[in-house]
Computed example of a mutant assay.
Amino acid sequence: MSEFVTTSNGDRVAYDRRGDGPALIFVAGAGPWREIDPDTTRTAELLAERGVTTIVYDRVGRGESATGGVITLERELAAIEALIGVVGGRAALCGHSSGCSISLRAAVDGLPVAALALWEAPLAPPNSGAREWADEVNRWIDAGENAAALDEYMKDMPPEILDVVRSIPAMVEQAPSLRPDGESLAWAESAPHAQLFGGIRVPVLTMVGEATYDIMTPAAESITAAIPGASWKPMPGSEHSWEPEAMAAELAAFVHATHAADPAASATTATITATATN
């Protein structure tokens, strides 16, 4: 059964919590919510078996996190902050696709992020057109043309993927939730990555699927070069999706290692334990 938390902006965010131990929050990319994302749910279940507290949530404006008004990047970051509070005040983030740029922004903005695990961050070099593209997506959203906004957002994806996405009515209805994705990607392209991300001082692991799109490996290399101590690696996965068993094993090792090295870890663990027993 879903749990709910209310953000500082008043959004009611639905989530599933599993397991005990250091915390990891999954930050979805453009479009998915829990009901249509079984791979993330399965990964969270496997992580819970490996001693990790997991949070899988419906992003603002999706699934059971329905809302109104303009869904800004700030509202999405407030959701992450509220969910970090649910697990004791400190958590690793696992971003998927544009969820990576949202997660990076959370760390840069000073949210209590313990580590970043980034799956297939689709980040282009500076000034490659993301600002103009995001503005066009937002223009369609503001006009109430959700189908056109979704088409614009997905315009560089293979046509067969767009056909699948367009066949899901809720994906069109929830197109206003794409604004934070576009805004975070435009931000991630607004300057060299070393300038944007160079101040991040938490462990960062960037991963790409063994069969992936051309943009993903250069992006992983750029993120790694920008953040001191960051690393990247190929993982089992294709078509922008990971394999839950392999991903859970990798994330469990990453979360436990970073937790052990985190000077704030003992306080967070104590808070989680106290919350779980009350």
Rank of each mutant, 00 (worst) to 15 (best):
I102C: 04
E45G: 15
G89C: 07
Q195V: 15
C100Y: 00
S190C: 06
I215T: 07
A130L: 10
L73C: 08
A130N: 08
A78D: 13
P203E: 06
T7L: 04
A230D: 12
P125G: 05
S231R: 15
S190G: 08
P32A: 12
W187V: 03
S222C: 03
A226K: 04
E189A: 12
E3R: 11
P38K: 03
I36F: 02
S103L: 05
K233I: 13
I84L: 04
D39M: 12
N146Q: 13
P32T: 07
S231C: 12
P169G: 08
E145V: 02
W140I: 00
D20E: 15
L196Q: 09
L77W: 06
L205E: 12
D163N: 12
E250P: 01
A78K: 05
P218M: 08
M216Y: 10
E189T: 13
G182D: 01
M154L: 12
E35G: 02
N278C: 10
W133T: 01
A78Y: 05
L123F: 01
S167Y: 04
K233N: 05
I71H: 02
A130D: 09
E81G: 13
T217C: 00
A249P: 00
L93M: 09
L178V: 05
D262C: 09
Q195E: 15
P22Q: 03
P169C: 05
E173K: 13
T217W: 07
R105H: 07
D163H: 09
A248W: 06
A186T: 01
T277A: 15
I84P: 03
V172M: 10
E160I: 05
P192H: 10
P125E: 03
D16E: 15
L205V: 11
T224C: 11
A28G: 06
R139T: 11
L104H: 06
A79G: 08
